[in-house]
Design a protein around this nucleic acid. Structure first.
Lengths: 144, 144
DNA sequence: CAACGGCATGTTACTGTATAACATCATACA
DNA sequence: TGTATGATGTTATACAGTAACATGCCGTTG
């Protein structure tokens, strides 16, 4: 997807949810966009400092939290990182595969793969929050 | 399970794997044992300092890493914490349910619940490392 | 026994991750 | 115009994790 198109879609997505994709938030989103795969908060912080001179952690964390809340990013807890969500406009159960060797990240749509899991959970009365599962392992190209 | 019995079983478990459950490691394990649910490394550090005067982070992390490696503890990445594994002696796919409201933790055996997931992964050539899935949500008693 | 090797632990110092608390600014709307 | 609300700036600090090196313990082997 073209960058401008993507940003427009992201903006509309936020506005349809009653939020604003402010300049700062968009700037952070663009910075994330420039990194393939997982990106760390402090990496974004450094990028932001390069672009605007000063920036403190809360600035970055607030923007990232906002973007996660809007579904534009996923938080990858196991790695203390963030990745872009390419299909924020359709609700989905994500499955994020992180390769231990090359660090590459792949996002799968796991909708439909989780029924037996959710069954097991409801058997004990547990209601999961919609979320993304993160699994580490080895990707196809690193199998060799 | 009685505490002494548990510790003996843990010791034998380690020895059968060619490792020693040293005094320090056992002490840390006991400290984890005293906390219900998830416990943080720095909590253990504080406990340890209470018991022996001084202790530095590496001491605790090394012991915790060891215990995780032996399968006696699970690491809960999403929470930067650790929980006891109650059935370290049988290999299993764990499913750890963390309640967002009360902080309670429940561990399920997910062996057999993951086939459709692993199918989806192998379809893209991804080999997951054996691990525990951590899900957040709401537990039965907090549903109300 | 002494020397060595391997592992466990101690110690210092640091890097990285994240948030609290409060100040300021912008905007929208009464 | 005043005020409420949300966004951002700023300072300081808490929390999480590790690198690097020193020391101690213990079993093996010459």
């Amino acid at each position: 997807m073209d960058k401008t198109v993507y940003l427009d879609a992201a903006r509309r997505h936020c506005e349809s949810r009653g939020c604003r994709l402010t300049e700062l938030r968009q700037q952070v989103l663009e910075l994330v966009l420039e990194h393939p795969g997982v990106v760390k908060a402090y990496q974004i912080l450094a990028d932001l400092q390069r672009e605007r001179g000063v920036a403190a952690p809360p600035t970055v964390y607030r923007a990232l939290d906002f973007l996660v809340e809007q579904g534009l990013l996923h938080r990858v807890e196991a790695l203390n990182g963030f990745i872009l969500c390419h299909h924020f406009d359709c609700p989905h159960d994500g499955l994020i595969l992180v390769c231990e060797r090359c660090g590459g990240v792949e996002e799968l749509d796991a909708t439909g793969c989780l029924t037996s899991l959710t069954d097991a959970m409801s058997a004990v009365g547990f209601t999961p929050r919609a979320q993304n599962l993160v699994l580490t392992g080895t990707c196809r190209s690193c199998q060799a």
